[in-house]
Amino acid sequence: MLTAADDAALARATARRQARSRLLAHIVLALGVLVFAFPIWLTLVGSSHDANTIGRGDVPLWFGAQAITNYISAWTTGGSAVRTTGQVPAWLMLWNSLNMAVMIAVGKIVISLLSAYAVVFFSFPGRMVAFWLIFITLMLPVEVRIIPTFEVMVNLGLINTMAGLVVPLVASATATLLFRQFFLTIPDEYVEAAKIDGAGPLRFFKDVVMPLSVTNIAALFVILFIYGWNQYLWPLLIVSDKDLETVVVGMSKMIGTSDSQNEWNIIMATAVLAMLPPVAVVVFMQRWFVKGLTETEK
């Protein structure tokens, strides 16, 4: 039998153990946050110094006085260093990235909504074939069909165009699968009621399915915006025209092979600008972001 004193001692021991475990959790998480934030900190600091300070290797840990000059230089001209690719102002690269990301996200959502609707709410010959044709594209990422896709783009005259950047990335099995799964949860009674009211399939889509899908669309938009913004291989292949340069690719092109020529402070400022929009989207739309991520499951 446990006495009251034993009970109290046990409770105290448990409380102590839990407090220790919580303290450990705080320490580990704080360290984790620091490790993950440190590269960003260093880059932010670097973007506020002059090129010589960084080039000499005197890596500062606190901000310098050049921040405004550097960001203006990056934004308006892309820096003054001589590079093989030539300089592109960051505002133009950001504008191109924004266009590309929004068009990819919206395009994917629109065509996926339509095709998922057709597959779920209609019975027609070839339905299974259509579904599998879409589904199988999961297995053909751009990376594995680089060269032939590039040849197709050349044949269609889509090299160095915004359409060429966006359209091939718009087909998405993931988004179609997500909408399909969601549509399957819409009760049959809704369709029945709509039919009794004399509403056709298009009316039902507009008045019932679309309003029900709003949260899914928002969640998916967040994920797809980041996906579009962070594209690398495709823009690298399709765009050689400076006017269409996107910021992720453009930023990495700023790093030349010869280190002495690199204007590190401007490169760092551009890196900060390149990651700001998607990071802001994740932080400020966190709820939708987590929903989108866990529900598309890639």
Binding site: G32, A37, T43, N230, Y232, V248, M251, M275, V282, V290
Partner: peptide, 19 residues
């Protein structure tokens, strides 16, 4: 504070580590 690196492009992450 831990989930935002998801939004950083692989190429940008590379450049951060290069720095």
């Amino acid at each position: 504070l831990l989930i935002w690196p998801y939004a950083v492009a692989p190429a940008v992450a590379a450049v951060l580590w290069l720095f």
